[in-house]
C-alpha cells in the first residue's frame, strides 16, 4: 500500500501568524515593566516590595470582576452589570448582618449563590431569547444599583461584625515592612486564588476551551457539536459569581457599604481586560493578561500618588489612550492576518 504523506509546515509568515496572539500580551508586560522601572527610577521607596503588594490589596475586587469579565469577553459577550452586582453584594452583606442579624458566613454564602443565580438567569435570557448581551446586562446595571439604593441611601458600617475582620487579617512575608518584606491580607490571597482557578479552568478544562471556541466562531462550535448553550450561559454564571465575590471582598476591605461605590467598575474591568490583550470581539486572550491589565491600572494610580501633584483622573485618560492603542494594535494584527490569507 503506497501511502504518500501530506506535509505542511507553517511558512515563516504563517508562523508569525501563530505568534501574533502573544504580541498584545507581550506589549502589556513590556508596558508593566516600563511603568514599574520608571517609578523605581524616579521616586524614592518605589522599589519597596510593599508597593507591589499594595497593588493586590487595592485592586483585589477589580481583579476578581475583571477575571469574570475575561470569560464573558472571550466568549464574545459583554457584562455591564458587574459594578452594580458588586455594590449590591456589599450592601446585602451589610444589611443582612447588621440590620437583619443573620450570621455572617451564611450571608456571604447567600450573596455568592445569589450572584451566581443572577448570572444563570441573564445568561439564559441572552442565549435562548437571543437578546444582545449589552442590553440584557444593562438590566442588571440599573436593577442592582436601584436595589442597592433601596436598601440604603447612605453608608452602612460593618465594623461591629467580627467576621469581617478576617479579610484584612494579614500575613507578613520576609519579616514585614520593617525588614524589607511586605504584608498581604487574606482577601488578596482570595483574589489571587480566583486568578489561578480561572487560569486552570480556561486552559485545562473542556468548558474553558469551549469558551474560546464559541468566541472564535459560534456557528462552527455548534456544528462541531460543542455544548454552545452551556458555554454561553456558563460565562455569565462565572461573571455573576465573580461580581458577587468581589462585592464580598469589598465588604472585607472597607467594612462598610456605600450605595454609590463601584459606579463604572464594569468599565474599569473591560479596560483592564482589553489592555491585558484580550480581543473585545472574543476568541483570543489570556486571564493572566487580565492580571497584567489590572496591574497596569494599579501602577498608573500608584505613580500618580507618588508624583503627588497629579490628580487621579490622569489614570483614566492614560487608560483611554492605552485602550485606543491596544484596539488599534489588535485591529492591525487582524487586518494583516486577513491579507496574508487571501
Amino acid at each position: 500500500m503506497s501511502t504518500q504523506t501530506l506535509t505542511e509546515r507553517p511558512a515563516r509568515s504563517t508562523l508569525f501568524d501563530g505568534m501574533t496572539r502573544y504580541i498584545p500580551i507581550g506589549a502589556t508586560v513590556a508596558l508593566l515593566l516600563a511603568l514599574y522601572f520608571g517609578g523605581v527610577a524616579n521616586y524614592r521607596n518605589f522599589d519597596k516590595p510593599q508597593v507591589i503588594a499594595n497593588l493586590f490589596i487595592d485592586n483585589a475586587p477589580l481583579l476578581v470582576i475583571a477575571v469574570g469579565m475575561t470569560f464573558v469577553i472571550l466568549s464574545g459577550g459583554i457584562d455591564l452589570s458587574v459594578g452594580s452586582v458588586m455594590a449590591f453584594s456589599t450592601m446585602t452583606c451589610a444589611w443582612l448582618t447588621v440590620e437583619a442579624g443573620l450570621s455572617a458566613p451564611l450571608v456571604v454564602a447567600l450573596v455568592l449563590v445569589f450572584g451566581t443565580g443572577w448570572g444563570l438567569l441573564i445568561g439564559a435570557v441572552i442565549h435562548y431569547f437571543n437578546v444582545q448581551p449589552f442590553i440584557a446586562t444593562l438590566v442588571g446595571l440599573f436593577l442592582f444599583r436601584g436595589l442597592t439604593l433601596q436598601i440604603s441611601t447612605s453608608d452602612m458600617s460593618m465594623r461591629e461584625v467580627k467576621f469581617f475582620q478576617w479579610g484584612m487579617t494579614h500575613v507578613e512575608v520576609g519579616g514585614g515592612i520593617r525588614q524589607g518584606g511586605f504584608w498581604l491580607p487574606y482577601l488578596s490571597f482570595a483574589a489571587i486564588a480566583v486568578v489561578a482557578v480561572a487560569f486552570v479552568v480556561l486552559h485545562y478544562t473542556r468548558f474553558g476551551r469551549g469558551v474560546y471556541a464559541v468566541g472564535g466562531n459560534e456557528q462552527s462550535a455548534l456544528l462541531m457539536g460543542l455544548p454552545v448553550a452551556r458555554t454561553k450561559i456558563g460565562v455569565y454564571v462565572v461573571s455573576g459569581f465573580c461580581a458577587s465575590l468581589a462585592g464580598v471582598l469589598a465588604a472585607f476591605a472597607t467594612k462598610s457599604a456605600d450605595p454609590l461605590r463601584h459606579v463604572g467598575a464594569e468599565l474599569d474591568a473591560i479596560a483592564a481586560v482589553v489592555i491585558g490583550g484580550t480581543l473585545l470581539t472574543g476568541g483570543a486572550g489570556f486571564v493572566l493578561g487580565t492580571l497584567a491589565g489590572v496591574m497596569v491600572w494599579g501602577l498608573l494610580n500608584t505613580l500618580i500618588q507618588f508624583q503627588g501633584n497629579l490628580s487621579s483622573w490622569w489614570a483614566r485618560i492614560v487608560m483611554g489612550v492605552l485602550l485606543l492603542a491596544f484596539i488599534l494594535l489588535q485591529r492591525g494584527l487582524a487586518r494583516s492576518g486577513e491579507k496574508r490569507r487571501t
Binding site: 496572539r21 474560546y212 472564535g216 462552527s220 456544528l223
Partner: peptide, 10 residues
C-alpha cells in the same frame, strides 16, 4: 461544509 467549520483560534 464548503466553509471550514472549525475555530481558527484553537
Amino acid at each position: 461544509y464548503q466553509e471550514v467549520n472549525l475555530t481558527e483560534n484553537l
